[in-house]
């Protein structure tokens, strides 16, 4: 009964929080409206989510978000330095192919987004069977090091969260 009423508890929670943040003032009326939205939208859209991602350790995601935000700040400073102080011909860009152990589409999406937001790398493409991701590095002399860092720093953490 509860599973049919709330097919997707995390989505419901996210909708309630986002609605409350959107109206920006906390009143009882807003809370009731937020809960109504959080109940109705997942019910209407449940058909479009045949396989829901299962989070085995949701609390780990807080640690992940903190690490990524810290890396984003560092990435900004690093990229700004390259743009301002490197001569154009000294910027050595490389393509790096990173094999993936993650299998769920949601986890790969999060990983690709993380790679784009963090130090000097943009994720550009997956291989056709989603077993490998193509990353562009703005400036690196050590493509293998970049690959190992992505795998160690982000992928292993995402494996813990999603699988």
């Amino acid at each position: 009964m509860l599973a049919r009423l709330i097919p997707h508890p995390l989505l419901s929670l996210a909708l309630v929080l986002v609605w409350l943040a959107l109206v920006n003032t906390f009143t009882l009326g807003n809370l009731i409206l937020a809960i109504a939205i959080g109940l109705i939208i997942p019910m209407l859209t449940a058909a479009y989510w045949p396989d829901r991602p299962k989070l085995s350790k949701p609390l780990k995601s807080i640690e992940y978000v903190a690490i990524v935000i810290w890396d984003i700040v560092l990435a900004n400073i690093e990229v700004a330095k390259i743009i301002l102080f490197r001569k154009e011909r000294d910027i050595r860009s490389r393509w790096v192919s990173v094999p993936l152990e993650l299998t769920s589409p949601e986890a790969i999406t999060v990983l690709a987004g993380t790679i784009t937001m963090t130090p000097g790398t943009v994720s550009t493409m997956l291989s056709a069977d989603a077993g490998c991701i193509l990353v562009h590095c703005l400036n690196t002399d050590d493509p293998d090091g970049v690959r190992d860092e992505i795998k160690a720093r982000y992928e292993t953490r995402l494996m813990e969260i999603f699988e």
Binding site: S97, M125, S127, A128, D129, G131, L134
Partner: peptide, 16 residues
């Protein structure tokens, strides 16, 4: 581009 290390090539050049 570097070769993809899985069975298929990159998605814009190769079929799934």
């Amino acid at each position: 581009l570097p070769k993809s290390s899985s069975e298929c090539g990159w998605s814009i050049y190769d079929k799934p």
